[in-house]
């Protein structure tokens, strides 16, 4: 079964990097054969909010954030990869690969 990932993206202004990082994670997760759902915490508020069961089922969590994650206690006890949004925009594959390593 494909590894399940969930991610949260959030940048300072919440205008651009939040959404670029989200798209790049989805793009490379798909390429590498992982299931992923990405919650964006941007200027439009929280979108695609991850449910507790989605978090529960995930093998690994990616925080692509330049700021604090809202309601981060939802992820207590999970394996979490924390990176900046720019890193994910620059190299989405590296972020997915790093996250995958945490599972193995």
């Amino acid at each position: 079964m494909a590894k399940k990932m969930v991610a949260v993206t959030a940048c300072i202004a919440g205008i651009a990097h939040t959404y670029m990082a989200a798209e790049n994670l989805k793009k490379f997760a798909k390429k590498e054969g992982y299931d992923i759902k990405v919650e964006t915490q941007g200027a439009m508020g929280v979108e695609n909010r991850l449910s507790s069961s989605e978090i529960q089922d995930a093998d690994v969590v990616i925080f692509a954030v330049d700021t604090t994650v809202q309601d981060s206690d939802r992820f207590d006890g999970k394996k979490i990869l924390k990176v900046g949004t720019s890193e994910v925009v620059k190299d989405g594959k590296a972020a997915i690969d790093e996250a995958a390593k945490l599972v193995n």
């Binding site: 205008i15 651009a16 990097h17 939040t18 959404y19 670029m20 989200a22 798209e23 790049n24 793009k27 964006t40 941007g42 200027a43 439009m44 508020g45 925009v89 989405g92």
Partner: peptide
């Protein structure tokens, strides 16, 4: 600003830049 149509457009456009 929060949640208006234009902001949605900017978010969508930002995402497209990864395409």
């Amino acid at each position: 600003s929060k949640g208006d149509e234009h902001l949605k457009m900017l978010a969508k456009l930002s995402g497209k830049l990864m395409d």
